[in-house]
């Protein structure tokens, strides 16, 4: 958005956002860390030292290797001889994918509800906002657990594994939409009163088109900020669900699943199976949160 505007003036390097970014060591540091995670996860099939899902490549003689002992398995191995570093790279892939998909789902639902509520006003607004109020007081993880439980009861047990990924994305997304709806509604109320909307109405442009091509671009700034911060929360939600055993099946382990599996070996001394995925999860969420905090401050005109 601001990048496109700046390019006409002489490149994104001149934009305020870029200036603020390069002058904040925390922002640069967390961006680099996030990038490392995204690259490590995205390129896992090509750069991971082992393929943790190829049973033929696993050797039980390699099981429970200590970390930092050999170059072949830098972070040690689990009970099946799986390389922890590779498992973490693949796990981050699943965590990021589920987190991003859930946030995308929450954004679509929340933005649509917010636009409709803000533009329509009246009882539609009242009803939609009451629903979001009720849902906001209800913790998202409980909401996600309930959705997961209900879907689990509706769908035959043998099909659970196949649809579990979508169920989790739906459960997390549906528990996180109200924040987006509220912020978009607020901005829409402001934008609706502006002259360009009146002009569009006067020349007879339809409501849907006004909402999507006129108002929507002007309310997306805060959505970006909340979206970044929600990504961190969604990744934690997914990890929590997977840890509780109602998340993704062990055939598709996310960081949360890896931590749960490792938890079983905590008392027999193999701490690294759970601690390293845990540290990866913490670093990933911390980087995303710091980036979101920075973005919130940088896009807030009052703080300039």
């Amino acid at each position: 958005m601001s990048g496109a505007v700046a390019s006409r003036r002489g490149g994104w390097r001149d934009s305020d956002l870029w200036y603020s970014f390069t002058h904040s060591p925390v922002a640069v540091g967390s961006a680099v860390l996030s990038l490392v995670f995204v690259l490590g996860a995205g390129l896992a099939p090509w750069i991971a030292p082992h393929d943790p899902f190829n049973i033929a490549s696993l050797d039980l003689l390699d099981s429970f290797r200590h970390p930092f002992a050999s170059w072949a398995f830098p972070l040690g191995t689990d009970e099946q001889g799986r390389d922890m570093l590779s498992a973490i790279m693949y796990g981050t892939r699943v965590s990021l994918l589920v987190g991003a998909a859930s946030v995308a789902f929450a954004v679509i639902v929340g933005v649509a509800v917010g636009l409709i509520a803000g533009y329509a006003g009246g009882w539609v607004d009242g009803l939609l906002m009451r629903i979001s109020d009720v849902q906001l007081t209800f913790p998202s993880i409980l909401m996600a657990l309930l959705v997961d439980g209900v879907v689990g009861a509706l769908v035959p047990r043998d099909q659970h594994a196949a649809i579990q990924l979508y169920v989790i994305v739906f459960a997390i997304g549906i528990s996180r939409w109200p924040q987006f709806a509220r912020i978009v509604r607020g901005s829409t109320l402001v934008e609706r009163g502006k002259d360009y909307v009146a002009a569009a109405q006067v020349i007879g442009i339809g409501r849907v088109r006004i909402l999507i091509s006129h108002i929507l671009p002007n309310v997306l700034g805060p959505v970006l900020v909340i979206g970044t911060l929600t990504l961190g929360l969604a990744i934690l939600d997914e990890a929590t669900l997977s840890f509780l055993g109602v998340g993704l099946p062990p055939t598709q382990p996310s960081l949360g699943t890896l931590i749960r599996i490792g938890d079983d070996f905590l008392f027999s001394g193999q701490w690294w199976i759970t601690v390293f995925p845990g540290l990866a999860l913490m670093a990933l969420v911390l980087a995303i949160n710091l980036l979101g905090d920075w973005l919130r401050d940088a896009l807030n005109p009052r703080l300039r």
Binding site: F243, L244, I259, L266, T274
Partner: peptide
């Protein structure tokens, strides 16, 4: 406190147990 917010509850529990 920033690290505390980024740590999921279950991980805090596991680390304390460890």
């Amino acid at each position: 406190s920033l690290i505390g917010v980024s740590l999921p509850t279950f991980l805090i529990g596991i680390l304390l147990i460890l």
